[in-house]
Write a protein that binds this DNA or RNA. Structure first.
Length: 598
RNA sequence: GCGCCGGUGGUCUAGUGGUAGGACAUGAGCUUCCCAAGCUCAUAGCCCGGGUUCAACUCCCGGUCGGCGCACCA
């Protein structure tokens, strides 16, 4: 455990009071696992999503999609969510503990059941009895206890009645995978290409906890990068020198294991991160998190332990931020091979492949048949079609049989169909050896998946930005949010609402809004109170119109964290504020040049 | 889903079998004017349902929501 305290109570209270996030429908007693973002939170979320889109879609040259949140049952049959999202719970009548019934059966002494999850409920109940399984907690006999099915997916009906079952997606990714055949066309059939999606996903969690960290409706930002595993390589040079904290399996399992500081290049070289693709995205992600305001002293990449790995994923890392007294998973990076596309290929009518053209067309000699059905039909009746298929197969596997039949007069080719042997006269097989030119092959891409939890990132950003200090002996709490994501960029105040200062400040607020800035105007009470109010919501800059402003068209601009002020021309404000927000200019640098305001 | 603890204005909190008080915040006004000052006034509350009782925010039961622990977390 790192030496960080749990400040979540203060953070959650501030979030509620200042309009970041709060529990949904409290007028009706509230509902567990659902949160509403207030004015500030919605702004922060939008800015974070924009920043993610800029970095992981636009800057990487990837596509965007926006798929429905409801999908028909078939999609989740294929993806495996219908099965694997289904937990079989059995509750002990003695102590009240709930246990995974399928796990109990698999682990029972003398049990050779390997995939109890796939069994129907009555059978599982029967097996509980058969193996005389006791409650792992208190030992009481579990025989006869009902096994309940709990599916983490929200179900619904599509259209009237219940003819067409559908589910709210438990992850946004399937919306990309199912549309692969079309998406690849938009990529002109060329690998590699990436597709991103930001959207809501739904899981009927048994026990939602910790405010927006674990909810039943949440927002994901996912990227599916489709690659040719044989050829495609990430641009590791671009992130080679990014220094990260890695917490690999070996260190997690060692008694005195510690996270390792290393650059991405070192991590790849030393084999800490196995996949170059994962390493690439870890580097990109660290840099991006740092930019939007995750505290890198409370951040690490942790490798999944063998038990955590999904069966299709060879190597998997999580991005974790320390918040609410614990390490929180903010993003997952997995190399999913061709698992998802294969599943959909299996269950649907489509191939889910791309055509990969060879550098040179490859010409091979290939045996082909063209059976004369007008002869085979009368001769073999209903079996004729199968015989023709068998001939085709035989031509591919054992062309020498045809050669042998051709060599002798009245030669026949014998094929077996359903245990019967059919003799086909050689001249009716249409056998020939042709030169076939292949321009390429159909290839099922592999998938590299960085998957971000937007809500969790938001929580971490707010908690990592939370500061307390003292200004002139007065305690202050503020959010040191990065100016790029802060929901409000500039507060505009008249020192007092008189002598025309209010009007002038109002004009300035309008001008800044027209310049595309998020502005709040406040003329209430004492100036200090207004500064504190903006400090608490995390507004990075405040502009104040005072008496001098009316004389010389200058105002003071104050920076949140330092509370320092400088005096600048009103005319320069829109450009200046935008530059400050976007990080093009820094307040510190300005403060050195500009005269400090008293 | 289980166990323990809890739910009082927007936020934090005091309190009682006879329906509630404070602090902060918010709004209006006065005053002051570059960092939560002061004064006046105002807005605003006992989670929901049932029971016991003449009377329930208070006691009991159930629910719900939250915190923690267990389990769960593809």
């Amino acid at each position: 455990m790192p030496p960080h305290e749990d400040i979540s109570e203060d953070v959650v209270e501030l979030a509620k009071r200042r309009g970041y996030f709060f529990q949904t429908a409290q007028a009706y007693g509230g509902v567990a696992g659902f949160y509403t973002y207030g004015p500030q939170g919605a702004g922060l979320k939008q800015n974070v999503e924009d920043a993610w889109r800029d970095r992981f879609a636009i800057a990487e040259g990837h596509q965007l999609v926006d798929a429905p949140t409801i999908m028909p049952e078939a999609v989740f049959e294929a993806s495996g969510h219908l099965d694997t999202f289904d937990d079989m719970l059995v509750e002990c009548a003695e102590c009240g503990e709930s246990h995974r019934a399928d796990h109990l059966i698999e682990d029972a002494p003398g049990s050779d059941v390997e995939d109890a999850e796939a069994l129907p409920i009555p059978e599982v109940e029967e097996l509980l009895r058969e193996f005389e399984i006791g409650c792992p907690t208190c030992g009481a006999d579990l025989a006869g206890e009902p096994v309940e099915d709990f599916n983490l997916m929200f179900g619904t009906n599509i259209g009237p009645g219940d003819s067409q079952p559908g589910y709210l997606r438990p992850e946004t990714a399937q919306g990309i995978f199912v549309e692969f055949p079309r998406l690849k066309q938009y990529a002109r059939g060329q690998l590699p290409f990436g597709v991103t999606q930001i959207g809501r996903a739904y899981r009927n969690e048994i026990s939602p906890r910790k405010s927006i960290i674990r909810t039943r409706e949440f927002t994901q930002a996912e990227l599916e990068h489709f690659i040719d595993p044989e050829v495609d390589e990430p641009d590791l040079d671009a992130v080679a020198d990014v220094e990260c904290t890695f917490y690999p399996v070996s260190e997690q399992q060692a008694d005195d294991g510690e996270p390792i500081r290393a650059t991405v290049a070192e991590a790849v070289e030393d084999g800490i991160v196995e996949s170059d693709w994962i390493a690439y995205y870890l580097g990109l992600t660290k840099r991006w998190y740092d930019r939007v305001g995750v505290d890198m002293d409370r951040f690490r990449f942790r490798q999944h332990l063998p038990g955590e790995l999904a069966h299709y994923s060879s190597d998997c890392w999580d991005a974790e931020g320390f918040a609410a007294g614990d390490w929180i998973e903010m993003a997952g990076f997995s190399y999913r091979s061709d698992y998802d596309l294969s599943k959909h290929a299996e269950h649907s009518e489509e191939e889910f492949t791309v055509f990969k053209q060879y550098d040179e067309p490859q010409t091979t000699k290939q045996a082909t048949v063209d059976p004369d059905m007008s002869e085979l039909g009368p001769a073999f009746g209903g079996a004729a079609g199968d015989v023709a298929d068998a001939l085709e197969e035989l031509a591919g596997e054992a062309p020498n049989r045809f050669d042998a039949a051709a060599a002798e007069p009245a030669g026949t080719v014998d094929v077996d169909v359903d245990g019967e042997t059919y003799e086909v006269p050689f001249e009716h097989t249409g056998y020939a050896v042709e030169e076939v030119t292949e321009a390429g092959e159909h290839l099922r891409p592999h998938v590299v998946e960085p998957s971000f939890g937007v809500d969790r990132l938001l929580y971490v950003l707010v908690e990592h930005a939370y500061r307390e200090d003292e200004i002139d002996g007065e305690e202050r709490a503020y959010l040191a949010l990065d100016s790029e994501v802060a929901p409000t960029t500039v507060g505009v105040f008249p020192l007092m609402d008189k002598d025309g200062m209010g009007e002038r400040a109002g004009e300035i607020a309008s001008e800044l809004r027209e310049a595309g800035l998020s502005v709040t105007y406040d003329d209430s009470g004492a100036i200090g109170r207004r500064y504190r109010r903006q400090d608490e919501v995390g507004t990075p800059f405040c502009v104040t119109v005072d008496h001098d402003s009316l004389e010389d068209d200058t105002v003071t601009i104050r920076e949140r964290d330092s509370t320092e002020q400088i005096r600048v021309d009103i005319e320069a404000l829109p450009r200046l504020c935008r530059d400050l927000r976007d990080g093009v200019r820094s307040f510190d640098a300005l403060a050195e040049d500009a005269p400090a305001a008293e």
